[in-house]
Amino acid sequence: MVRRNALCVGINTYKNFPTATLHGCVNDANDMAQLLKDVNGFTDAEITRLTDQNATKANIMKELKRMVTEARNGKINHLVFSLSSHGTQVPDLNLDEMDRADEAFCPHDLAQSGTQWNRDHIIVDDELHDLFIQLPPNVLLEVYLDTCHSGTGLKAIDLLLDRKPRYLPPPSIEAFRDMELRRARPQHLKLLEKGLTHHILWTACKDHQTSADALIGGDWHGAFTYYLCKEMRTGKNKLSRAKVLAKVRTDLANAHFTQTPQLECEATVRHATHHEEALVT
């Protein structure tokens, strides 16, 4: 019997950084929650939404820890986590990345401490990895990240009036120079390595690209989330994830977005009606 829980997070506003406001992240959280209900059969009771002022680091981590604890106790065997927000980078502190940066996600209460981001108010990829690694091997984890962690792929088209990159650079010149000396690993390598294998991870772009907050169809959305929901609704679980990804990539290219979404999963992880699956890069 499938017992499931989902956390859908969307953050448009940032308490201490009003100029960093996005427009489509709350819509993304609502769209993902509705998709889970309409296509995957989730109930309202199985879905938690955290948006804007409610989406603090403490609240996000509290809910994720609850889900993992319930999975460890045998109460849940399918977890879904979607996050639409700004991404950024922080220096590696635990020496597992001697010459690289850690990737991080920006909650509503994002704050600065000295020349760097305040670790109490930012979610570092190490924290998610250390939490998710606790999941039993029979628990399926599905993660959707509509954010980006590098501005190196920024192009002029990303700055058009109807789109905005979901990336915040380090908060100071000193921190920026520190990041220039490092190279962050792709998020799928940090979040899901070292024993965490029963997983599916969708990311909105390659590690050197930006994820777009975009005006589509008269409203703001994450470009990746918008087209993902569109294709998953069209496929209604009859398409493999690899085929959904291919269609989303085509949709984004046709709309002149520069990002290339990524999918990481085990070859054995499928929807019930899927006959094929693949690791797609």
Score class of each variant (00 low, 15 high):
Leu110Glu: 01
Met98Glu: 11
Ala242Asp: 11
Glu103Leu: 13
Lys65Phe: 10
Gly222Tyr: 05
Leu192Arg: 02
Thr152Glu: 13
Pro165Asp: 05
Ala33Arg: 07
Phe224Tyr: 07
Lys37Pro: 00
Ala104Arg: 01
Asp92Thr: 08
Ile47Leu: 05
Cys25Tyr: 00
Gln116Cys: 09
Thr19Phe: 13
Glu174Gly: 12
Ile133Thr: 15
Asp99Gly: 04
Glu127Arg: 01
Phe105Cys: 07
Lys206Trp: 05
Trp220Ile: 09
Met232Gly: 05
Lys230Gly: 08
Val2Met: 11
Thr152Trp: 05
Lys75Met: 15
Lys236Ile: 01
Val90Phe: 04
His208Asp: 13
Ala29Thr: 06
Leu7Cys: 03
Ser85Asn: 10
Gly217Lys: 11
Phe132Ser: 02
Arg66Val: 12
Pro91Asn: 10
Arg100Lys: 15
Ala58Arg: 09
Pro107Tyr: 04
Val269Lys: 01
Leu131Ser: 08
Arg166Phe: 04
Gly222Asn: 05
Thr48Gln: 14
Leu168Ile: 12
Arg100Gly: 08
Ile133Lys: 15
Ala101Thr: 09
Val90Lys: 02
Leu145His: 00
Ala212Asn: 06
Glu103Gly: 12
Asp207Ala: 14
Leu145Ala: 07
Glu63His: 15
His221Val: 12
Ala204Arg: 03
Gly218Ala: 03
Pro186Thr: 14
Arg177Asp: 14
Arg166Tyr: 02
Ser82Arg: 01
Asp28Lys: 03
Glu63Arg: 15
Gln112His: 01
Val26His: 02
Leu35Ile: 02
Phe105Tyr: 07
Val139Trp: 05
Gln187Arg: 12
His23Tyr: 14
Tyr144Asp: 04
Arg72Thr: 06
Arg185Val: 02
Glu70Asn: 13
Lys236Asp: 10
Met67Trp: 11
Thr13Phe: 05
Ala246Ile: 00
Trp220His: 06
His121Pro: 00
Val244Tyr: 02
Leu36Ala: 02
Ile133Arg: 15
Leu159Asp: 15
Leu252Ile: 15
Ile122Trp: 00
Thr273Asn: 12
Cys205Ile: 11
Glu277Ile: 01
His271Ile: 05
Pro137Tyr: 10
Asp96Ser: 12
Lys37Val: 10
Gln134Tyr: 02
Lys75Asp: 15
Ile173Gln: 13
Val124Lys: 04
Trp117Thr: 03
Glu264Tyr: 10
Glu264Asp: 09
His198Ser: 12
Ser85Ile: 08
Leu50Asp: 03
Pro136Val: 08
Thr147Phe: 02
Leu145Val: 06
Thr19Glu: 13
Pro91Gln: 10
Gly87His: 00
Ala29Asp: 08
Thr258Gly: 13
Met179Asn: 13
Asp102Ala: 08
Arg49Lys: 14
Asn5Arg: 15
Leu196Val: 04
Pro107Met: 08
Tyr227Phe: 15
Val280Arg: 06
Cys265Arg: 00
Val280Pro: 01
Leu7Met: 05
Glu127Leu: 06
Glu266Thr: 06
Asp28Ile: 04
Thr260Glu: 08
Leu201Arg: 01
Gln112Tyr: 01
Met1Trp: 04
Leu64Lys: 10
Phe176Ser: 15
Pro107Lys: 05
Asp96His: 13
Cys229Leu: 07
His275Asn: 15
His198Leu: 13
Asp31Cys: 11
Leu191Asn: 02
His199Glu: 10
Gln89Gly: 07
Pro107Ile: 09
Ile173Lys: 09
Leu160Met: 14
Glu264Asn: 04
Thr152Asp: 14
Asn40Lys: 14
His188Ala: 14
Asp38His: 07
